[in-house]
């Protein structure tokens, strides 16, 4: 178990470093510029240097903050993220605990992020932070519902909450072919769940400066940053399991296939960010309640009917 924990922490850190570098490279190439080039091959070690700099920075605690809550928030955002890695099936063998409620565990723990955002926003004693926190909660509640419902349509088809069972059920055809609408809904909700553009309302920098983490500096900010990228990995991993057949593939080892699919989805999410402007807050909520949730329900209903009929 301890080996697993160390492995997860190492994976989380390396993954975040890689994703930040990837984000910068993707953004740069979309914007017709080379991006980081100096440190390492094509700037591959740039984020390592940045992380070291971040760790060496002074941790500033503003006077007016609610200290215990303020200090706890970055830790709380990070812990559930670690738990999520316990159940992700990287390959048939590479899975730490194959729980039979795996998918439920992931959804339950990933909702904890919002608690931490509320704590960070509220305890910072800054109006912009509070705005960010309140927006974030409204957004997470709104987008968690369609997320769960779309996942439910897959679970209905498989008849199990176990992630390995879901992958096993896709031996003939990936669920993305059978459930294209569910896949689309899932990707939209996942982007919103991870607070990524065009749904990055909680930290909309042109409105709220930096939203809930305005008052955080140094490695405390680093933890929020780390959690954002790790969350991105987790939602993409779940999408891979639910829709893209998990580790399934040809020739290459299963774990490589799994990572290829995950990073492809992450690339898609990054592509969104560097293409779209940001939605307005009320448009975002309206979109969730009036479009996504009804669509998700319709999808679930049709799935249930189809299972009953065929």
């Amino acid at each position: 178990m301890i080996v697993a924990l160390i492995g997860v922490i190492a994976l989380v850190s390396v993954n975040a470093l890689f994703l930040i570098w990837m984000e910068r490279k993707v953004a740069a190439h979309i914007q017709l510029r080379p991006g980081p080039m100096e440190v390492g091959y094509h700037g591959a070690l740039q984020t390592v240097a940045d992380a070291l700099k971040l760790m060496g920075k002074e941790l500033i605690t503003p006077d007016e903050v609610d200290r215990p809550v303020y200090l706890l928030a970055p830790i709380i955002i990070f812990l559930p993220v670690l738990v999520l890695f316990l159940v992700i099936p990287f390959s048939p063998n590479l899975i730490i605990r194959d729980l039979n409620v795996g998918i439920l565990l992931i959804f339950a723990f990933s909702s904890l992020t919002v608690l931490s955002i509320l704590m960070a926003g509220w305890s910072s004693n800054n109006k912009y932070s509070v705005f960010g926190a309140i927006r974030s909660i409204a957004q997470n509640i709104a987008y968690e519902i369609p997320l769960l419902i779309t996942a439910m349509s897959i679970i209905l088809m498989v008849g199990s909450f176990k992630l390995t069972d879901i992958v096993a059920a896709q031996d003939k055809v990936w669920f993305v072919v059978i459930q294209p609408l569910a896949f689309l809904l899932y990707i939209i909700c996942a982007t919103a769940e991870t607070n990524r553009a065009p749904f990055d309302i909680p930290e909309a920098e042109s409105e709220l400066v930096a939203g809930f983490h305005t008052e955080y500096s140094g490695m405390r900010f680093g933890l929020f940053f780390l959690a954002e990228y790790t969350n991105m990995f987790v939602v993409s991993a779940v999408a891979t399991v639910l829709f893209l057949g998990g580790w399934r593939g040809w020739i290459l080892p299963p774990v490589v296939w799994f990572l290829i699919k995950v990073y492809a989805i992450i690339f898609l999410i990054m592509w969104f960010r560097w293409t779209f402007p940001r939605l307005r807050f009320d448009q975002l909520i309206t979109f969730a309640w009036k479009v996504l949730i009804p669509l998700a329900f319709v999808n679930l209903l049709v799935t249930a009917l189809a299972i009953k009929l065929f």
Binding site: A27, I30, Q31, L32, D200, A204, E205, S206, F276, P277
Partner: peptide
């Protein structure tokens, strides 16, 4: 202006 609305990329195209 697009930067204000949260779209970063047009900014660099314009500066180009």
């Amino acid at each position: 202006y697009l930067l204000d609305l949260g779209a970063f990329t047009p900014f660099l195209y314009c500066f180009d």
